[in-house]
């Protein structure tokens, strides 16, 4: 299995190369001149020219790409144009809050989402089903910024139970995790429900029932277990989405995460930071996919890696 992982990761290198080129061309295609933004509105054309040369933006695009890749290979990702920090120094401090938030949001959202989904499937067509799906739909149909601001008003200002933001203590994770996770929870619940409904009607489940197994055992051992592959796939995608940052939750709760960094950097046309972030997201997506594939094997030992 170790060998399989290495092979999988190595095979993604060409993909990453292609992605890096696409990303580079793509973000330079977006209109906007960082030199003008840095120099300021009142700067003259000559001022802007000086800045453009300083930033190396006057060279042909392909040359810039070549230099960028050369730097990348030697571990030099360049400097942020905002303040001259290295790209590593810009991105690394933002990783921790994003990862912690992703984990705390994903954990409750996936568990509760699956639980709601299973219950809804078991009580298909009954009140519990409707209630579960109602919760799920509310989760999908409330925008993050709205939910976040409401939670702050209720739990921080009116009740005074939880802090309004930041990431100073475990309490401060509660509201952002709720905000970020609600959508994930909803999606998990719906997918689990529909997948469970499918498997619960499969022949082997009927057989199990016919054999006289008690219902809860049927649900768990046969229905749920066979739905797991699909559930894990969806969960993987959702975690990937969370990791690339929820800019809304980060804005509302003043969290210095990757989502806000990405949006700020795009706004400033801070190309090197955007490139590095996008490459990171691509890599992260590949790794999550790998983990999901490995989990398939755990869930169903019949799956072989080759």
């Amino acid at each position: 299995m170790g060998r399989y992982c290495v092979k999988r990761l190595l095979s993604t290198i060409p993909l990453l190369l292609v992605i890096s080129f696409l990303i580079f061309m793509f973000i330079h295609m977006i209109p906007g001149d960082p030199a003008r933004l840095i120099a300021g509105q009142d700067a003259t054309k000559a001022d802007v020219k000086v800045v453009r040369e300083q930033l190396g933006l006057n060279k042909p695009l392909l040359t810039q790409y070549g230099e960028y890749m050369k730097g990348l290979v030697t571990g030099d990702m360049g400097l942020s144009i905002r303040n001259g920090k290295t790209v590593e120094d810009t991105i690394l401090p933002r990783l921790k809050p994003t990862i912690l938030l992703t984990l705390s949001s994903a954990m409750w959202a996936i568990m509760i989402g699956i639980a709601i989904g299973v219950l809804a499937a078991v009580f298909h067509g009954k009140m519990a089903d409707y209630l579960g799906m109602l919760i799920a739909i509310v989760g999908i149909s409330v925008p993050g910024f709205w939910l976040g601001l409401q939670l702050i008003q209720m739990f921080s200002v009116s009740l005074g139970w939880l802090p309004t933001g930041g990431l100073d203590s475990w309490q401060s994770y509660v509201l952002p995790s709720l905000t970020m996770g609600s959508g994930v929870m909803a999606i998990m619940a719906r997918f689990t429900r529909s997948s469970m409904l499918e498997t619960m009607r499969a022949d082997y489940v009927r057989t199990a029932r016919a054999k006289g197994l008690i219902e809860s055992l049927v649900v768990l051992r046969h229905g749920f277990k066979n739905s797991l592959i699909e559930i894990v796939t969806v969960a993987g995608l959702q975690i990937g989405g969370l990791l690339s940052g929820s800019v809304m939750a980060e804005t509302v709760f003043s969290i210095p995460g990757l989502g806000r960094l990405l949006v700020d950097s795009i706004n400033l046309r801070d190309y090197k930071v955007v490139q590095a972030l996008l490459l990171f997201f691509a890599l992260e997506y590949i790794v999550i996919n790998l983990i999901v594939d490995l989990l398939y094997g755990v869930i169903n030992p019949k799956v072989r890696y080759d």
Binding site: L15, I19, V247
Partner: peptide
């Protein structure tokens, strides 16, 4: 599709 998935929605929209 992988590339698209790996691309944050927001960036795509902004672009």
């Amino acid at each position: 599709c992988d590339v698209m998935f790996a691309f944050p929605d927001i960036l795509l929209a902004i672009a």
